[in-house]
């Protein structure tokens, strides 16, 4: 579904070149839930920005369903992003003057699509915010705001959900709620998710963890049923 080949990104800051991604070969299959972990500055958030077409690589390719994003103009990337990608950020990034309902409807407006009220209410139910449609972000807790942000990210039924530290501003209990929710969308609806996190507890929700270090993939591990049986017998030993 999404693949990067030899992806490099160099930032020029004050005449100084900083190489953030140094050649990333990475792919995500449809229906996968992948967590990207690594220390600050290891390049994980930059990768997410590139996957979402918010920026272009210095070198290398990003293929989204076979379409090479880096070959597209900014305008074309915006259209692709609006149709195929949903974003969830650490700081929620809800529009403060819009109600919950209007925030969720926003991606449809931006793409010139008809607002589907039934779908919005269905999503509000799914994120456990039934009856909150007329409230404003300032009336909600952090966890509730992130739930709205998830509903907003999913209203246009994106092929892939990109989440950048979605639980970074939440305590462990609220984090669990958000991660349970993402996990439910992944399991029940087959939502493809790529989540950047520094939190091992959050990464455990994924099918696969990719560890970044100094702009490169250090290692990756995948959860498999055979491993699980072996793990259970070892866990109980």
């Amino acid at each position: 579904m999404i693949q990067t080949i030899g992806l490099k990104k160099v930032f020029n800051t004050g005449g100084e070149k900083t190489s953030v991604l140094k050649g990333i070969d990475f792919s995500v299959q449809k229906g996968e839930f992948v967590a990207i972990m690594g220390p600050s500055g290891s390049g994980k958030s930059t990768l997410l920005q590139l996957l979402g077409g918010l920026d272009v690589p210095t070198e290398g390719a990003i293929k989204l369903d076979g379409v090479e994003l880096q070959k597209k103009t900014e305008k074309q990337r915006t259209i692709i992003r609006r149709r195929k990608i949903g974003f969830v950020f650490q700081s929620y990034q809800l529009l403060p003057t819009l109600s919950v309902y209007e925030n969720i409807a926003f991606p449809l407006h931006a793409d010139g699509r008809k607002v589907d009220s039934v779908a919005i209410h269905e999503l509000l139910n799914a994120v456990d915010l039934k009856g909150y449609d007329k409230r404003f972000p300032y009336e909600l807790s952090g966890g509730q705001q992130q739930r709205v942000a998830i509903a907003r990210a999913l209203i246009h039924q994106p092929d892939i959900l990109l989440a950048d530290e979605p639980t970074g501003n939440l305590d462990r209990e609220r984090s669990s709620d958000i991660l349970d929710l993402l996990s439910a969308f992944h399991q029940d609806r087959g939502q493809t998710i790529v989540m950047v996190t520094h939190d091992l507890f959050a990464a455990g929700y994924a099918d696969r963890i990719v560890l970044f270090k100094d702009g490169l993939i250090e290692t990756e591990v995948q959860r498999e049923d055979d491993d699980y049986a072996e793990f259970l017998s070892r866990f109980m030993a």
Binding site: L200, F201, A203, G204, Y205, A206, D207, I209, L211, T219, V221, Q222, R223, D227, Y228, F231, L232, F235
Partner: peptide, 15 residues
């Protein structure tokens, strides 16, 4: 470390 990361995935599944 890889083994322990797998344990994290499996423990979360158990959770």
């Amino acid at each position: 470390k890889q083994t322990m990361m797998k344990d994290v995935l499996n423990l979360t599944q158990l959770r």
